[in-house]
């Protein structure tokens, strides 16, 4: 769902860009205080995995493809603010090196995929872990469902940006975007929960979101 230049107006890109700048500022300030040196390799490898996995478009319905986004996985591994830094690195490199997503549209893309996908997705994850049993299955299910929401919500914000830019009315674009991304979201849920299960098996200490679930640690 990388928005190319020309889809979204300068006003919308500037607004989303300003919001992202402020939130990335918060993420940087928090990293200065909290990001441990031993977490940096995880941050680096998470960014690389997300970049590589985003290249692999998988087919969804009728001549359409989708790909992994990864913001929620990053948020679960590193915390939502470090995830925003990871998504910033990935999206900036994609826009500059590969012209995937517009350069002017970077603000909107980072807003949809980093802020909405990562931060809002993480809030949904927290709500789900509160409701679901505090076990490994409950944890992975929360991650999978939140991953699905991260994609669908991001697609709705992209729809809103297109509508606010006068490109296409929200009532026309939103159902189409939400429809196709609800299928792509299933892929996101599968990849997120699989990756999460693998990391939990190998190194549960690396999963930032895991210590909140005291029962989970016992059941591992």
């Amino acid at each position: 769902m990388h928005i190319p230049d020309g889809f979204v107006s300068a006003t919308v890109n500037l607004s989303t860009g300003a919001a992202c700048a402020a939130l990335v500022g918060v993420a940087v300030a928090r990293a200065n205080r909290n990001l441990e040196a031993q977490t940096v390799p995880l941050l680096s490898v998470t960014a690389a995995f997300i970049f590589a996995a985003q290249m692999v478009n998988f087919p969804v319905a009728a001549g359409t493809s989708g790909h992994f986004m990864g913001a929620l996985l990053a948020a679960l591994l590193l915390g939502p603010w470090n995830a925003l830094i990871v998504m910033t690195v990935v999206l900036v490199l994609q826009a500059l090196l590969f012209a995937d997503g517009g350069i002017l549209a970077l603000g909107s893309n980072l807003f949809n995929m980093g802020v909405v996908g990562g931060l809002a997705g993480y809030a949904i994850f927290l709500g789900l872990t509160f409701l679901l049993p505090k076990t490994r299955t409950g944890f992975l299910t929360s991650g999978a469902v939140a991953a699905w929401f991260s994609i669908v919500l991001a697609s709705l914000f992209a729809s809103a940006e297109l509508a606010l830019s006068g490109t296409i009315p929200f009532a026309v674009v939103a159902p189409a975007m939400a429809g196709v991304h609800s299928i792509i979201g299933v892929g996101e849920a599968l990849i997120t929960s699989t990756a999460l299960a693998l990391v939990i098996s190998a190194r549960p200490d690396l999963v930032q979101a895991a210590p909140r679930n005291t029962m989970l640690r016992r059941s591992l």
Binding site: E36, L43, S44, A47, F51, L93, Q94
Partner: peptide, 20 residues
């Protein structure tokens, strides 16, 4: 190229921003 670049830039950004 892209995966290596993300790995290196991610590491560099992390080292730059991490707690002193």
């Amino acid at each position: 190229i892209g995966t290596m670049a993300t790995l290196i830039v991610g590491f560099g950004v992390g080292r730059m921003l991490m707690k002193r």
